[in-house]
Simulated scan of single mutants.
Amino acid sequence: MDYSIFIQSGMTLVLGLIAVKVFSILVNTKLTEWAKQTESQWDDVVILIIQKRVIPFLYLFVVANSVIALPIPSYIPSAIHKLLIGIGGIIAALMSLDLIKAILEHKISGISEQGHKGIVTLVRVVIWALTSLFILDNLGFKVTSIIAGLGIGGVAVALASQTLLSDIFNYFAILFDQPFEVGDHVIVGDTSGTIESMGLKSTKIRSLVGEQIILSNTQLMNTKLHNFKRMDNRRVVFQLGVEYSTTHEQLQSIPTIISKIMTGIPDVKLDRCHFCEFAGSSLNFEIVYYVTGRDYQFHMDKQQQVFLAIFKEFELAKINFAFPTTTVHLAKS
């Protein structure tokens, strides 16, 4: 028996394993240290992918290549070749998923954790479907027939589930456009509440009363939506009326009093205060101010503080608030 083939195969195995080991040491030491010194995060991602995916496959490739060189039945090299193609396809799919996750984490900002999961799930389905077709094609299956069958079935399913597909597409539109996030207080049409969760088909809103309202994603995207969570300042407009018996000097002092009150309250900024109307039973002033903050409870606390301060200052200045009155003149016949 000629042992030279076994010796040659063994040497190929040993040299191949040594080469892969040296490459692995180089990646784990020199390249890793170099990547730590750079500002870019992409070299770290590439090195991590090489460590997790490429190096294990190289070890497997060296072993398989050494086995193929041995005098073995012809069907074994063919099986090993197909096995390598299958494993290579799986490794390529895993590398693609790692790269896409890195892109979502480092390149695309403003997407929530739930958004990341939704996008990764969609990409994972597409990549594994393509990988499966690639492996089946290399195993000898007629992939074109499978694709044609899926195409006909896909058209039928799409026609039967247009509403469902519309909701799914709008789900990803919400993820990318980010009109709201979980925890935001919104008003959609006549529905008001806090976003509780988002799904492929629908979004759940917890109303102020406490009930759970479920709206389809298509309905959300086609309806005017108010997001109060992203409101940096809350604008407040109100009117107050004083009696017609109020003197000219007292009327002139009202804007000054209002300005003094607003200046003394933190997180409140006066925009304007004007004498705006001669009403039926009152002289009306319109006041506009801003509250720094988006929380509704905080806004109501500040409004209460403003109103109480106005009441106190008007009492000190002997300015009377007006209320609807009717004067009746009786004439003797």
Rank of each mutant, 00 (worst) to 15 (best):
M11E: 12
V268R: 00
A69G: 08
I119E: 02
K82N: 11
L133Y: 09
V120S: 11
I103W: 06
E313I: 03
D184R: 00
L84R: 00
S145Q: 13
R230G: 10
A331L: 15
G189V: 05
A92C: 09
V155T: 08
T203S: 05
Q41M: 13
L99E: 00
K101F: 11
V123I: 13
L97R: 01
Q305W: 02
L159K: 09
L58R: 02
S197Q: 10
L13I: 02
R235E: 13
I87N: 00
P255H: 06
E249N: 13
N320K: 11
D184Y: 05
Q252F: 11
V54M: 07
S259D: 14
A35H: 00
K82T: 10
F141I: 13
I174H: 04
P255C: 05
L316C: 11
E196K: 15
N284E: 14
G88L: 07
E286P: 03
D177Q: 15
L31V: 10
R53K: 14
L139P: 02
I152A: 11
K229M: 08
D232T: 15
I76E: 01
L208C: 09
F6Y: 12
E39S: 12
I205L: 08
R234W: 11
I174N: 04
V268G: 02
V182Y: 01
I214V: 08
K52E: 11
S74D: 13
E243M: 11
T246N: 03
G86M: 00
L150G: 10
V155N: 05
